[in-house]
Amino acid sequence: MKLLTANRLHDGLTVWYSGAGWVEDGAQAAALADDVAETLLAEWKLRETEVVAPYLIPLTDRGAPVQREHVREFVRANGPTIGQTADALSKAFNRADIFEN
């Protein structure tokens, strides 16, 4: 399974594909079957007035990004781990950090 993610063109924010469209909360990202994910990725690569740099994140059986991508995706989904904005996303979306391990 894979997640589809990108940055939105006009404000640059990290967004996730929920199945219905793009959302800012990574917790709502849809786990997509590999072939579905590849098809969607190819489509969104062309629609670059909406999102830029879309890519797929491979998931482990437990639904977390595979180890190779883990820290990076943890930070992307939860925001900087330190400083003034630490935990800002989890507060904004009223959830715990995701992709914890």
């Binding site: 640059g12 990290t14 830029v52």
Partner: peptide, 28 residues
């Protein structure tokens, strides 16, 4: 022109970089 699609991201990137605008993990 980037927002309207006249410029592709590939073409826009060096132009925005020359104006100090990067795309990072969370945003521009």
């Amino acid at each position: 022109r980037r927002l309207s699609g006249e410029l592709t991201e590939d073409q826009f990137k060096p132009l925005r970089l020359m104006n100090g605008l990067y795309l990072q993990l969370h945003a521009y």
